[in-house]
């Protein structure tokens, strides 16, 4: 049945009649115009800038401009080490972005603290406070890896439906879109992680051992 529909669509389009579903149209609009926030923390930011430059042009994938204001951005690419001093600011920026919004954790430091994990000021992964959609390993990941992550995000958006379980988060009435901002404590951040986000079974591909 699916294949017949696809053949019918192809035949019609050859004659100048385009058919689509509302879901496909909705997802097509979302995936092809993801505008990132200018947010670079450390070394990975330089590779992110190199990805937007002439050789590995990211604009052809839809990331036409990098917006400086979070109110106008769709995607935050957390590129570089998130320190405990900076973590409340990252969460605040994420909260200020309007839905639908996505997070790419670029580089080993944003995923888990990376080579600096032993540090007293290093947050061991940004997914302790905000939900992450795509993780890119590498230190720093090559520009091609960032492009691949971008395409992975686009594929993830394609698979989302308008109704049912695989709805995007902004269509769920009771899913939060803002997360509590951690405070500076005497010895670290309080709370050390946001359990709703970090221990979330569906979002987190990792499992706690202890």
């Amino acid at each position: 049945m699916e294949q017949n529909l696809k053949d019918l669509k192809l035949e019609l389009s050859k004659n100048g009649i385009f058919t689509t579903t509302l879901e496909e149209l909705y997802n097509w609009g979302r995936r092809n115009s993801v505008w990132p926030l200018t947010f670079g923390l450390a070394c990975c930011a330089i590779e992110m800038i190199a990805t937007t430059m002439a050789r590995y042009d990211l604009a052809r994938f839809g990331a036409e401009v990098f917006r400086a204001s979070p109110r106008q951005a769709d995607l935050i690419i957390v590129s570089g080490t998130v320190t405990k001093k900076m973590a409340p600011q990252v969460v605040r920026l994420y909260n200020q972005m309007p839905e639908p919004k996505y997070v790419i954790a670029m580089g080993a430091c944003a995923i888990s603290g990376g080579p600096f994990r032993d540090g007293y000021n290093v947050l061991k992964g940004i997914d302790r406070y905000i939900p992450v959609d795509v993780h890119i390993p590498g230190c720093p990941p090559r520009p091609e890896a960032l492009i691949h992550a971008f395409m992975t995000l686009q594929k993830k958006l394609d698979e989302q439906t308008l109704r049912g379980e695989s709805r995007p988060r902004h269509l769920h009435a009771d899913e939060p879109s803002e997360f509590p901002v951690p405070e500076f404590g005497a010895h670290g951040l309080e709370p050390a992680q946001n359990d709703d986000v970090f221990l979330n079974e569906t979002g987190n591909p990792l499992r706690i051992l202890q």
């Binding site: 032993d118 007293y120 061991k124 010895h187 050390a192 990792l206 499992r207 706690i208 051992l209």
Partner: peptide, 14 residues
Amino acid sequence: DYVPPADDILMEAR
């Protein structure tokens, strides 16, 4: 003699 806070959590891939 500084002791960092114990906020390290061991994880494994599902």
